[in-house]
């Protein structure tokens, strides 16, 4: 009897859970489906859900006509470039704060976090002027630099929370055995730090890929990533829904997949370790 009610309850929950999940996921699903329609079918009423002539034409069209690949490459360069540069600067800092903390370490971390809270519009004008004067507007280097700076606090924080979990006695043991600082880092610490670093990379690539304030304001063509490419579809009253859908699907698919793999790290990184 008790089992019957739990099964019924479970069935009810399944229906409810899937129903809600479907509604929330629907805009993405709809974009995906529309990307395989012809432009005529994309705007037809009543809408066609599954029974239309599936075509890959939009993908070919987007790829051949609009330099899609160049924008995608720019996204890759900016997302991975800024993450690598960020790691390069942040790993030593996080290591130092985790393993030889001083009285000021906590304040330092808090201060780093506070830089993240500066609203972007507050510094839009000076950054724009500096970029113009140093000829950094619409360059890969400029974008990598900005993206590194805005995500650096998160990188340091995330690495710090991971490094903190590495037991200090292991380091002390290595030190006792006469390991140099370099050996300590390369042979002892690095292998244990890899998972944390990997999660940090994942989260940062996601954040940098989707960043749409600086990319829209500081790029035009040469270094413009996918966020800017998609925004260009807003001008002609959005006439090409199927092509927009194909471009959107390509732009979001890799990141949605990455995001699905990194749920846990996401919580940790975005709440600065406050919720685990």
């Amino acid at each position: 009897m008790a089992r019957a009610t739990t099964t019924r309850r479970k069935a009810l929950m399944t229906a409810l859970g899937w129903g809600v999940a479907f509604v929330i996921f629907f805009p993405i699903l709809w974009t995906f489906l529309t990307s395989f329609k012809t432009e005529a079918e994309a705007v037809t009423t009543p809408p066609k859900f599954l029974f239309f002539d599936w075509t890959l034409a939009n993908y070919h069209e987007v790829n051949s006509r609009s330099n899609y690949m160049r924008f995608a490459m720019n996204s890759v360069i900016i997302a991975f470039g800024s993450t690598l540069l960020g790691l390069l600067v942040a790993i030593p800092a996080a290591w130092a704060m985790a393993f030889s903390p001083t009285k000021r370490t906590k304040d330092l971390l808090m201060w780093m976090l506070s830089t993240k809270m500066m609203p972007a519009v507050g510094v839009l004008i000076p950054i724009y002027i500096l970029f113009r004067d140093f000829r950094l507007l619409d360059t890969h280097f400029g974008m990598v630099l900005v993206m590194t700076l805005i995500n650096l606090p998160i990188i340091v924080w995330m690495l710090y929370t991971y490094f903190k979990e590495i037991p200090a006695p292991i380091l002390e043991a290595a030190r006792m055995d006469g390991a140099t600082l370099r050996q300590e880092i390369v042979d002892v610490l690095a292998p244990m730090a890899v998972p944390g670093i990997a999660s940090t990379v994942l989260l940062n690539v996601i954040l940098a890929w989707n960043e749409a304030f600086w990319t829209l304001n500081l790029t035009t063509t040469k270094a413009a990533p996918l966020t800017a490419f998609i925004a260009s579809y807003s001008s002609p009253e959005g006439l090409f829904w199927a092509k927009l859908s194909a471009a959107s699907t390509m732009a979001i698919a890799p990141i949605v997949l990455l995001g699905w793999f990194s749920q846990k790290q996401l919580v940790r990184g975005l709440t600065f370790g406050a919720v685990k």
């Binding site: 809600v20 999940a21 929330i24 996921f25 805009p27 993405i28 974009t31 996601i206 890929w209 989707n210 749409a212 829209l216 996918l226 966020t227 800017a228 998609i230 925004a231 807003s234 959107s248 732009a251 979001i252 990141i255 949605v256 990455l258 995001g259 699905w260 749920q263 996401l266």
Partner: peptide, 11 residues
């Protein structure tokens, strides 16, 4: 449910 968070704002 969590997928929309990974969609870029312009999309």
């Amino acid at each position: 449910v969590i997928a929309p968070f990974f969609v870029m704002p312009t999309v």
